[in-house]
């Protein structure tokens, strides 16, 4: 069954559990691959997690001269293949969200692979499985459809078409924070 990682941005309390859990994923070598960012650091404590959004047409893979970034049939954009990555770092420059990390010593790019060892079996990725506030959710297609319909009712919709906060269609779905925009969300 197709699953989606879904980010309910309002819920994030900045505990960094997702970062810590990321380090424990198989093959991540104890290094995290996602980010938790302060939205307005000198004013309030609101944070939002940012991870690879697994674009349908990934700029990182398009810019890779060695075809090292593979997209799985589930839509996960994998970390660079170790034997192919030549260390040019085109992907880090191409990614519109600034996600890929680069290890100079290993001459290797590494990025969120949606915990492919887990998600290809339908198990939620590490970040979603530990998130205490349900900011990161692992939804089935139906659950996502229901969320999307609810979004269409109010103006806090995650994907306002002409004004999309993303740079293209992605496999990770998001829901924008309403409070920060002065809108009350009903959940």
């Amino acid at each position: 069954m197709k699953h989606y990682l879904y980010i309910e941005m309002d819920n994030c309390v900045g505990c960094r559990s997702c970062l810590a859990a990321c380090t424990q994923c198989g093959g991540h070598d104890e290094r995290n691959r996602n980010y938790v960012l302060d939205v307005n650091p000198f004013v309030d404590r609101q944070t939002i997690p940012l991870m690879c959004l697994h674009c349908i047409d990934p700029a990182c893979a398009r810019s890779c001269p060695a075809q090292a970034i593979q997209v799985t049939k589930e839509g996960a954009v994998l970390s660079a293949l170790t034997e192919k990555c030549v260390g040019c770092q085109n992907c880090t420059i191409a990614c519109p969200y600034g996600i890929p990390k680069f290890d100079r010593a290993q001459n290797l790019m590494y990025k969120c692979d949606l915990c492919y060892d887990r998600t290809k079996e339908g198990i939620p990725p590490m970040c979603a499985s530990v998130c205490p506030t349900n900011t990161l959710q692992w939804l089935t297609e139906e659950e996502w459809k229901t969320k999307e319909q609810r979004h269409a009712i109010g103006q806090w919709s995650a994907s306002r078409s002409p004004e999309s906060p993303l740079e293209g269609e992605t496999n990770v779905k998001i829901s924008l924070p309403g409070i920060l925009q002065g809108i009350q969300k009903l959940y």
Partner: peptide
């Protein structure tokens, strides 16, 4: 995502290396 110009605020990304 939020409409707040976070990139214009001179603050480093904090606590990104949780183990």
């Amino acid at each position: 995502f939020t409409g707040i110009p976070t990139h214009q605020i001179r603050a480093k990304e904090a606590n990104q290396d949780a183990k």
